[in-house]
């Protein structure tokens, strides 16, 4: 590996960019792929290898590819970390944060209401006490980010949902009954969101497993987020 490639790779990882290293296994020639562009390295890879690299990034799985040219190429994936933004430092968020952390997500709980978002209620969790619109603008959800609106309060949930739905976030869920959601759809439509944008909301939130307690709802939500990330296997 060339030193300039390693330095560019480390910089891209620190900036949480979508990065892959492609290595031709015969001779070790490499290229660095950042956000779809070749940024470093001397390897000229065939198009099918670059396509395979993008597919590997989508699947978040490093793999060796046998290319049409008969050579083996290794694609090493360096995706940004998974993130879960929870709007609302509510009871369900208390249950969801540790489950998501165990599943490998960086969890950020967003709530401007000081009493809710206290350290004691969320030990070891990053709590952001900005208003949700401000927080989401700053945190800028990417393709590796899931967003859950859990406050039941339109003043807090709606501005977050508007931003999440217009971001590349791979999952957007909102707590609330069907009736609550119908009202929400009306408000978001008035706010100028398209039907296709609004349809992205998982609501009522969570897979339908009959969840009742906050912990059960958290499990249903985490399962739904996992499904959105990985896709069903069709067994």
């Amino acid at each position: 590996m060339r030193r300039d490639l390693l330095d560019a790779l480390n910089a891209a990882r620190a900036e949480k960019r979508r990065t892959a290293v492609v290595t031709k296994l015969d001779d070790g020639d490499q290229l660095l792929l950042i956000d779809g562009e070749i940024e470093a390295g001397g390897l000229v890879a065939p198009a099918d290898v670059l396509d395979a690299a993008e597919a590997a990034l989508d699947k978040d799985t490093s793999r060796t590819v046998e290319a049409g040219d008969g050579h083996l190429y290794f694609v090493q994936v360096f995706n940004p970390p998974l993130r879960l933004l929870c709007v609302g430092a509510v009871h369900i968020a208390q249950a969801l944060a540790p489950i998501a952390a165990q599943a490998g997500y960086e969890v950020i709980v967003i709530d401007p209401r000081g009493a809710w978002a206290s350290r004691e209620r969320f030990p070891g969790v990053r709590v952001d006490d900005r208003w949700p619109d401000e927080a989401l603008d700053a945190l800028s959800p990417d393709r590796r980010t899931a967003v859950c609106a859990l406050t039941h309060d339109p003043k807090l949930d709606d501005p977050a949902l508007v931003r999440a739905l217009r971001s590349p976030a791979f999952y957007v869920g909102a707590l609330g009954s069907k009736k609550t959601h119908a009202n929400r759809v009306e408000r978001l439509t008035e706010a100028g969101l398209t039907a296709a944008e609004i349809e992205r909301i998982a609501a009522p939130i969570g897979l339908d497993i009959g969840a009742l307690s906050p912990a059960e709802i958290a499990i249903a939500v985490m399962a739904q987020i996992t499904l959105a990330l990985r896709g069903a296997k069709g067994r």
Binding site: R3, L6, L25, G28
Partner: peptide, 11 residues
């Protein structure tokens, strides 16, 4: 398992 071993080239 297949393991690829490469040198980190000097600057």
């Amino acid at each position: 398992v297949k393991v690829f071993v490469e040198k980190l080239e000097d600057r």
